[in-house]
Design a protein around this nucleic acid. Structure first.
Lengths: 157, 157
DNA sequence: TAAGTGCAAATACATATGTTTTCGGCTAAT
DNA sequence: ATTAGCCGAAAACATATGTATTTGCACTTA
């Protein structure tokens, strides 16, 4: 196997600044840090926005499916959906084929809110990627997808 | 400015699977998901481990400095340090130059625990990077650092 | 040197998340 | 048909994080 040098956290010369996972957390943190402030002005929290982006892609979706896509526990999503119902962003109805399943759908208001937020998020993305070429982004995606795939296999011990 | 195509979250053809930030969150989530389970067997939670890695690099460190490096609020770090003191992982003492500042240092036990955990984390890293070349990792680091730097400039609105 | 200002940390308070348990509905085996 | 077991969601419970406030110290400056 290849020697990982300074990248490996078990290397004696390891530094956080050279750690891919630390940098991912850092970039993600900064990305959301000031975006959250803006979203809050529109009454939307980070987890609510996440749920909305998941729903934009696949609708309706069950609580469990949303939880998985949003990297969050079911109980948490269940409560977030409650708040979203109160805000009129989504509606729920039992799946006709299986009454245990709760299907969630964006309302017209929800879709409108999402459309309003989209350009804001777009600007943040543009800002983040300043000076990063599309080739670099494509490369980044491939690497991240590879890492995710690796980590979806059997765990360590 | 360059057209970002599907990468931009404001693009109509945007998909979460092609979103750098979603993939970062996903990779980070998976990376910590099963590692946390292992760490817990050694009585170490994710935030505690994070603090330890920060301290390994720069010791002693103030509460505020740790909070910043660990991407967490001061109050949270303050309480995490309390728990770490109870577990005998760190000690604290006021900074002799400025009594307001609390300096945190790893104890022998803390360093020993860290040494015990290091190979475990190393295996997880190796597992994550399977099939990813050192050149790819270097490229990943550069891109992530660039993104972080961009996001550290003035915010959106 | 005394008062005001600002900062670091800790505390009290509110909120959010995760873990466990409960409830109801589906499915398959007898 | 009945029952045992499984699964999704929600509720109860415990824990952790963030926000706002307080406390104590240090620096400034009048």
């Amino acid at each position: 196997m290849e020697n990982r040098g300074d990248y490996d956290p078990s290397s004696p010369t390891f530094r956080l600044e050279n750690s891919p996972f630390y940098l991912m957390a850092h970039a993600d943190f900064k990305y959301h840090e000031d975006m959250d402030k803006v979203l809050h002005k529109h009454g939307v929290s980070k987890p609510i926005y996440r749920v909305m982006t998941v729903l934009r892609e696949h609708q309706p979706a069950s609580i469990g499916a949303i939880a998985e896509a949003a990297l969050t526990k079911r109980s948490t999503i269940s409560r977030i959906i409650d708040r979203m119902i109160e805000q009129g962003l989504v509606t729920t109805e039992p799946n006709p084929e299986d009454n245990r399943i709760t299907e969630v759908t964006l309302t017209a208001t929800g879709q409108q809110t999402l459309r309003k937020l989209t350009p804001i998020v777009g600007r943040q993305f543009t800002r983040a990627m300043d000076g990063v070429s599309n080739r670099d982004i494509a490369h980044l995606l491939r690497t991240l997808q590879k890492i995710s795939a690796n980590l979806s296999k059997l765990p360590i011990e």
